[in-house]
Amino acid sequence: MHDIRRVTEPGKRSLRRDLLAARDSLTADEVREAGRALARHALELPELAGARTVAAYVSVGAEPGTHDLLEALYARGVRVLLPALLPDNDLDWGAYGGEGSLARRRHGGRMELFEPSEPLLGPDAVTAADAVLLPGLAVDARGLRLGRGGGSYDRVLARLERAGAHPALVVLLYDPEVVDRLPAEEHDRPVRAAVTPSAVHRFA
């Protein structure tokens, strides 16, 4: 994966394109090994060690793998909430019950997603989480995260704020996706930490 640490203020669209292209260059073995390493680091986080409920997601394609992490949290007895995409791009949530509890769903022309089976718990279920594991494409030294641009997790973060909920926010990334500075907007909310296959990065 090429290094984008020197990229400072490109447009978000072109930056997303470059980051996705770098991910797409990874082999399936590289993605699997990165997921295993990422899980090892994530499971050492104090925020997850003491969590009773964790909102997470099922990785797809070349995203940093979450399957090992989900299984380890579930085996610990953690209540794991997973998102289900709604037609307006908001997220509902359901409880993870192991790999057999997931359903494969295609949303329009988008990629297939693995989502929790019924019953779903409603969009506000995420406000009960002690930690929220976020997907993303990059994070900068301020803890500001770059997502895919769909706005689903912007809604989640706004919902947490409205509810007065303050779970630990952690983004899961590859190593070169921790950069110096990203373009930011007023509604962007910083994360507490980023976990990559080689390290945990914490932000003030």
Results as ranks from 00 to 15, higher is better:
residue 3 D to Y: 03
residue 6 R to M: 01
residue 7 V to W: 15
residue 7 V to G: 00
residue 11 G to Y: 12
residue 12 K to Q: 13
residue 14 S to H: 12
residue 15 L to W: 09
residue 17 R to C: 02
residue 17 R to M: 11
residue 18 D to T: 15
residue 19 L to T: 07
residue 19 L to E: 11
residue 19 L to H: 08
residue 20 L to A: 06
residue 22 A to F: 08
residue 26 L to K: 08
residue 30 E to N: 01
residue 31 V to I: 15
residue 35 G to E: 10
residue 37 A to Q: 11
residue 38 L to N: 05
residue 40 R to P: 00
residue 41 H to E: 10
residue 43 L to A: 09
residue 44 E to N: 02
residue 46 P to G: 04
residue 47 E to N: 00
residue 55 A to Q: 01
residue 56 A to G: 04
residue 61 G to A: 10
residue 64 P to H: 01
residue 64 P to G: 01
residue 66 T to F: 09
residue 66 T to I: 05
residue 70 L to S: 04
residue 71 E to S: 12
residue 72 A to K: 03
residue 72 A to R: 14
residue 76 R to M: 11
residue 77 G to Q: 07
residue 81 L to T: 02
residue 82 L to Q: 04
residue 86 L to Q: 14
residue 89 N to S: 13
residue 89 N to L: 15
residue 97 G to S: 12
residue 97 G to M: 08
residue 97 G to L: 11
residue 100 G to K: 03
residue 100 G to P: 00
residue 102 L to G: 09
residue 105 R to K: 14
residue 107 H to E: 04
residue 109 G to R: 13
residue 109 G to P: 03
residue 115 E to K: 04
residue 116 P to G: 12
residue 118 E to Y: 00
residue 119 P to A: 05
residue 124 D to T: 14
residue 124 D to Y: 02
residue 124 D to C: 03
residue 126 V to I: 14
residue 133 L to S: 03
residue 134 L to W: 07
residue 135 P to N: 07
residue 136 G to L: 10
residue 137 L to H: 04
residue 138 A to C: 11
residue 139 V to Y: 05
residue 140 D to V: 02
residue 143 G to Y: 04
residue 143 G to T: 10
residue 146 L to G: 07
residue 147 G to V: 11
residue 147 G to K: 09
residue 148 R to K: 14
residue 148 R to C: 11
residue 150 G to F: 03
residue 150 G to E: 07
residue 153 Y to M: 06
residue 155 R to N: 02
residue 156 V to N: 13
residue 157 L to Y: 04
residue 159 R to Y: 04
residue 161 E to M: 02
residue 165 A to F: 00
residue 168 A to F: 01
residue 169 L to H: 02
residue 169 L to F: 06
residue 175 D to C: 00
residue 175 D to E: 10
residue 175 D to N: 03
residue 176 P to T: 03
residue 178 V to C: 08
residue 178 V to H: 06
residue 180 D to P: 00
residue 187 H to K: 04
residue 189 R to L: 14
residue 189 R to E: 09
residue 193 A to V: 05
residue 195 V to C: 06
residue 198 S to M: 01
residue 199 A to V: 00
residue 202 R to H: 09
residue 203 F to C: 11
